[in-house]
Design a protein around this nucleic acid. Sequence first.
DNA 1: CGCTAGTCCTGTCTGC
DNA 2: TGCAGACAGGACTAGC
Length: 267
Amino acid sequence: MPELPEVETIRRGLDFMAGARVASLQLNRRDIARETSYEPRELVGQRLDSLNRRGKYLLLQFGERFLVMHLGMSGRFYALPVEEACTEAHVHLQLTFDNGWQLLYKDPRRFGGAWFTCEPGPVLARLGPEPFDRSFSGAYLFRATRNRKVAIKTLLLNQAFVAGLGNIYADEALFAARIKPSRRADSLTAREARRLQQAIVDVLQAAIASCGTTFRDYRDGFNQSGQFQELVQVYGRTGEKCRHCSKGLERTVIGGRSTHYCPFCQK
DNA sequence: CGCTAGTCCTGTCTGC
DNA sequence: TGCAGACAGGACTAGC
């Protein structure tokens, strides 16, 4: 569910927690732990040094120990004052800190998970370039699409190609670049590759500026909705008018994912 | 090796 | 009101 802009919004919102110390930990469902190279309870007494993001992963560092979170489709990770007891269902992990706040991981579908590890490298090893990194250039996008027969939409969702895009922003970026989602990746010209790279950066930055997109589940680090859904051009707007040409937007399925586009503006 | 389809889950909405 | 079926911001993997 949360894509790069949502995870980045959560990270920024929770950054104030840096410096706080873990007072207690409650792991309500052991099976959300994807890796336990140390015992989760060892976090008690540890100081939260920093919060970072890589792709859709959130990384909390406590000295030599890391807590890596991925929120899957329905996951939330947010702060709640300690005096406000959490009564919600599907809260699998609860970290109480000495600064009067607790961090909660809630995830009804449980497609997300947590890594209790001292070495986060392998968890992130298969991720492609960060979209805001210099290495993610028009030239990279052109080169990396050569000999790839899959639909460009499918490739954008491949985290090894570029880290952080999900279904919303893949559709939005392709609209902004005026490229049909069903196009074979290797059919993109160098000019189109450059346009798509720029569109990805622009769309993600705009979404971060709007604190992410909330259609159903997503909430930020304080359990509040994002705003970018008011600015989306194609995602979830099937049958509505294209804001550019006024014709009807369409929906199709590509790589098993619902895909939204303008059949007139996107070539 | 690249690619597709199936799988993991729960909640919500639609149509009969 | 009940119920079946479709669908949902993701990502791994068996099998072709």
